[in-house]
């Protein structure tokens, strides 16, 4: 029974004894001196390590996740299609979206079905995990490099659609927060300009003719 429970056999077990202390070691003097040496080294080191924030701004890694922004598409409309994937993915449940039908008679919105009527992120509840960014099918919501977020009231820290678009306008020219894609109408299926041979993360069964490339030059591009 006991044998079954032990994952290693007794032959593999080596018993170790604590090394015995020598004379000097049992006086503890070498240890005391080595500690003193360390303290002296720090006392005589005059190179400063303190960062003079806010006069000096920190150099953050490129993948830093700060305040959100809502991107605009090439026509200046909010890219978000109000699919609510971000608020579904959000572990902190801090995104609240109300959707509406895009006005069909407005030529600016004629090619869109759905858009956010209101879009509120509670920046205080957010844990800045970036799940929303991952979930967004049109690359609308993104986390920027803004880290120094302050406000006087909790209400002020609930960012609405206008404010989030403003963050975009502020950060879009900053090389740290570039506009990464121009995808914006809808999901990838309606947006392919070139056809990937197979979808990503797809296992192709051996001999599936469907996965072979289409003969080129059959279709005229343009």
């Amino acid at each position: 029974m006991a044998e079954e429970l032990t994952p290693i056999s007794n032959d593999d077990v080596v018993w170790m004894e604590e090394p015995e202390m020598g004379f000097w070691e049992s006086t503890f003097l070498p240890a005391i001196f080595s500690g003193l040496k360390n303290s002296l080294r720090h006392v005589t080191d005059f190179k400063p390590v303190t960062q003079q924030y806010p006069e000096e701004k920190p150099d953050l890694p490129l993948n830093y996740r700060g305040v959100h922004r809502l991107n605009r598409d090439d026509k200046g409309r909010v890219k978000c299609v109000a699919c609510m994937m971000c608020s579904t993915a959000c572990p902190a449940r801090c995104i609240d979206i109300v959707a509406e039908e895009a006005p069909k008679d407005d030529p600016l919105w004629a090619d869109r079905d759905k858009r956010p009527k209101s879009f509120v992120i509670d920046e205080l509840k957010c844990i800045y995990c970036g799940m929303c960014e991952e979930a967004c099918p049109v690359d609308s919501i993104e986390l920027t490099h803004i880290y120094d977020l302050t406000g006087l009231t909790r209400q002020e820290m609930k960012f609405n659609k206008e404010k989030l678009l403003e963050v975009f306008d502020q950060t879009k020219d900053n090389p740290r927060d570039p506009i990464r894609t121009h995808r914006g109408i809808l999901g990838p299926a309606s947006d392919f300009t070139s056809l990937p041979q197979v979808g990503p993360a797809t296992q192709i069964p051996q001999g599936d003719k469907a996965s072979e490339p289409v003969s080129t030059d059959v279709i005229k591009q343009g």
Partner: peptide, 14 residues
């Protein structure tokens, strides 16, 4: 399914 999806917009998000 491939046929059914040929012209399908796949706009599931909206």
């Amino acid at each position: 399914l491939e046929y059914l999806l040929l012209n399908h917009p796949l706009d599931c998000p909206v």
